[in-house]
Design a protein around this nucleic acid. Structure first.
Lengths: 196, 196
DNA sequence: CTATGATGTATATAGTGATTACATTGCACG
DNA sequence: CGTGCAATGTAATCACTATATACATCATAG
């Protein structure tokens, strides 16, 4: 590839990626089209060839953040399906979700700052969750009667902890966070009647 | 009072209240100092006599939103303390929280968009929750062993539902929301071992 | 090889947050 | 009862941002 070409080649992705870097440090509200364009080595107006609006750009960055979250919780699925295995994986997914929020709080916040209906072509956290819950029922670790709406129950709990613990408002000292997370995950387990 | 005075009299509060009106319609990110100043009938620069920064102004509006939320869930406390009464009030508080989020989604989002450590002088949602949980233990509706960290467990669940259900991402059709809310609240009850 | 659409540049406009110097006011204090 | 001073508002200004328009450059299909 040439050192400098008039056409960038993949501006849309490059600008979103630069946006993610910025978001990780300063948050979604701090991104500026001009600065982003500069950091990619392009004129500000060029961005508008790929994004109609600043809102469109922000939405794309938020979407990318959601994809990163989905990847972070996409743990490998064990080849054999056991009650214990399914329950453990389910638990690990929940922990991975909270950990992502704790490690990248601004990225996590950006993922939910602009919410679009999920696009079916991109990896979605919802699908990961659905799969894990189906595994729970298939393995017999969770009664089928509890299955409907289970995604929301689990997600609400985990999302709630992440959101509140990430924010300074949490009012919970750092050394107690582990216990709170534990307690919330146990609540989910109890609520969904996951046995092992 | 005169029709027009050089000094406004209570600009800080007036501008925050105008900000709340704006937030309710367009969201916290859409507020502009100039427009707010204009809507209160004052010069843009006047705001900076009361707020150091735009961040400061936004934080004040967010704080005001949090106070509205706290007021919305401050249900009257029954005079006699029974197990059934304490459990029912706890439940009603949770429902009021979710309802607030559903009725005023942008205001609710603004309340958590900027989080400061809670000021002890203002009515706080946390205190309402603490009081309700203490009542649960006092009335015997909840074992004392489950008390530590119970605020977080309850808040995480309710906050999670509100947050996800409010956003388009929820992926849950409107007619199923009631069931999901019900399920999440039941999960809290189970997790905290609230008996009646 | 060339015309055409996609992509980037140059330039301009309106609105924004913020700063400065100045005007007006209400209130404490002699 | 002034009167001077601190609080509060105004006017004018600057740098920056999003966005629109007209033009330049390229990549590629025919």
């Amino acid at each position: 590839m040439a050192v400098t070409t008039y056409h960038h080649g993949d501006l849309a992705n490059a600008v979103v990626e630069a946006g993610l870097r910025r978001v990780r440090q300063r948050g979604l509200s701090a991104i500026s089209g001009r600065e982003l364009a500069g950091s990619v080595g392009v004129t500000p107006a060029a961005i508008y060839r790929h994004f109609t609006d600043k809102g469109h750009l922000r939405a794309a960055i938020s979407q990318a953040a959601r994809e990163q979250l989905a990847r972070a919780i996409s743990l490998p699925r064990p080849r054999t399906l056991s009650k214990r295995g399914a329950a453990e994986r389910f638990r690990q997914i929940g922990l991975a979700y909270v950990e992502f929020a704790l490690n990248e709080p601004l990225l996590y916040a950006a993922a939910f700052e602009i919410c679009e209906p999920p696009r079916p072509d991109s990896p979605s956290a919802w699908e990961v969750l659905t799969e894990a819950l189906d595994d729970l029922v298939r393995s017999g670790a969770m009664p089928a009667s509890r299955r409907p709406g289970a995604e929301m129950v689990a997600w609400c709990a985990v999302h709630g902890v992440s959101n509140l613990i990430t924010a300074p408002m949490a009012g919970v000292p750092v050394n107690q966070r582990g216990a709170v997370i534990q307690q919330v995950l146990d609540g989910v387990k109890r609520s969904l009647q996951i046995t092992p």
